[in-house]
Design a protein around this nucleic acid. Structure first.
Length: 423
RNA sequence: GGAAGCGUGGCAGAGUGGUCUAAUGCACCGGUUUUGAAAACCGGCGUGCCCUAACGGGUACCGUGAGUUCGAAUCUCACCGCUUCCGCCA
């Protein structure tokens, strides 16, 4: 959520920022709504002040009774009715305004390149040369089933298309990646959390998934709970409604969770094999930091994600997303894309973003600074990393002519020393 | 799933219809005293929003929501959470 007071003060900046994002926002209507709400608030509150004074005056009269008491009560009742009516009006206006605010995206940082869509994203860095093979490298959807470590048909049998099963060394390799990722984060000072995979609608609103993107979420209707699309949701909301001790910032958390996404409308686009599925595992990094250091912290966090790809020996690149491609809640995003030799494409395995105070305002996450006053903090998060596409890249990059796959050295301790996955 | 009890400020804990902007204690901050510290004493000490150039004023919040009343932490109802017991169960 944006800062309404800031919008009031400098509407031009917001107008431009939303325009750059391709969002059409009627700023004048918002400002008019805001003025109306504040006016109603002032009137309602002064009426309530009158009512409170009138009620207070009844106390001493109550014992005596008589006409004076009845008269005072009647007067207070009339005031009360008036206040109630006005308050209802105020509440409706306030709700309309706050509902509108929930649909407005976070303005991007000034440094974010202006652009329309993914085609305008800027390649910030490329790591590693394109791996060379003495044979034609296979795509994972051929390679992995042949090794008996991935089974698409059985996944579809259980839950429909978009669900995959891993078998034997495939399942174990996936678990190894998760463990190694988490251990790397712990070494970097992160605190690991295990969190619920189902959350309430209010929690989804805190990080920005609701109300606008509900069609992408799986919902348990009987219980009014939703399956998390990313650990960002439960982990960021761990501190919802809290006032943290500023001296403890930045807090660096990580968590491994499955992620559930309906991918409504994405059918057919890059969905072959395991590249886009409804359920996948991911390790997520989440930071709670200050406005002063959030931008620098984003670099640090992105470095942590990149180090994982380097450790696995996977060619990858870093994209700075343009305004038009930056996610709703984010002010600045870097995507990490890993090279898939089997398909000759880049696959997104991480998205590292600064949400500035957009999420903390929605979720009411504050910290007490040196001056003792509570202030909204900044939240960051980044994948570190998403499993399926890492698995794809590992298999395709480390595949051998005979169809076997060399296990990257860093993962071997997690696989009982296994050096090669064979049929 | 059933029953009972309980949800008050950072913590502990009073308050059961009117001066509650919530007693008291602890913690915390400032000051006095002290060579320094402790102790003692004095003062301060929640959050959001609205009005104001500012000083300041107002309003809301005692798990959440609704209700009764001129007036609710206090009464009523629903919901949520915690604790204990029972049932079921990885």
């Amino acid at each position: 959520m944006i800062d309404l007071a800031a919008l009031r003060k400098d509407p031009a900046t917001f107008r431009k920022a939303w325009g750059d994002r391709g969002a059409s926002v009627d700023v004048d209507a918002l400002l008019a709504q805001d003025t109306q709400v504040r006016e109603l608030k002032t009137r309602t509150e002064s009426l309530k002040a009158e009512l409170n004074a009138a009620s207070k005056a009844i106390g001493p009269l109550a014992k005596a009774g008589g006409a004076a008491l009845d008269e005072a009560k009647a007067k207070a009742r009339a005031l009360g009715d008036q206040a109630k009516a006005l308050d209802a009006e105020r509440e409706a206006a306030e709700k309309a305004l706050s509902d509108a605010l929930l649909y407005l995206p976070n303005p991007c940082l000034a440094e974010v390149p202006v652009g329309k869509d993914a085609a305008d994203n800027r390649v910030a860095a490329v790591w590693g040369d394109e791996p060379q093979f003495a044979f034609k490298p296979k795509a994972h959807w051929d390679l992995a089933p042949a090794l008996g470590i991935m089974d698409f048909e059985r996944g579809a049998k259980l839950a429909g298309s978009g669900f995959v099963t891993l078998r034997g060394a495939g399942a174990r390799l996936s678990r190894a990646l998760v463990s190694w990722f988490l251990d790397c984060h712990l070494a970097n000072g992160y605190t690991e959390w295990a969190v619920p995979y189902l959350v309430t609608p209010q929690i989804m609103q805190g990080t920005g998934q609701l109300p606008k993107f509900g069609d992408q979420l799986y919902r348990c209707k009987d219980d009014d709970l939703l399956l998390v699309p990313t650990a960002e949701v439960p982990v960021t909301n761990l501190h919802a409604g809290e006032i943290l001790d500023g001296a403890t910032l930045p807090l660096k958390y990580c968590a491994h969770t499955p992620c559930f996404r309906r991918e409504a409308g994405a059918a057919g686009v890059g969905t072959r094999g395991m590249t886009r599925v409804h359920q996948f595992d991911k390790v997520e990094m989440v930071w709670f930091t200050t406005a002063e250091r959030s931008r620098a912290d984003l670099e640090t966090m992105r470095g942590h994600a990149e180090a994982l790809l380097k450790g696995l020996g996977l060619r990858h690149r870093v994209l700075q997303l343009c305004t038009g491609d930056t996610g709703f809640s984010s002010a600045c995003t870097f995507d990490l894309e890993v090279w898939s030799p089997g398909t000759g494409t880049w696959l997104e395995v991480s998205s590292c973003s600064s949400f500035t105070d957009f999420q903390s305002r929605r979720a009411a996450i504050r910290a007490r600074g040196a001056d003792g006053k509570p202030q909204l903090i900044h939240t960051l998060n980044g994948s570190g990393l998403a499993l399926p596409r890492c698995l794809i890249a590992v298999l395709e990059t480390w595949q051998q002519a005979d169809g076997s796959v060399i296990v990257p050295p860093v993962l071997r301790p997690y696989l009982g020393g296994m050096e090669r996955i064979c049929k």
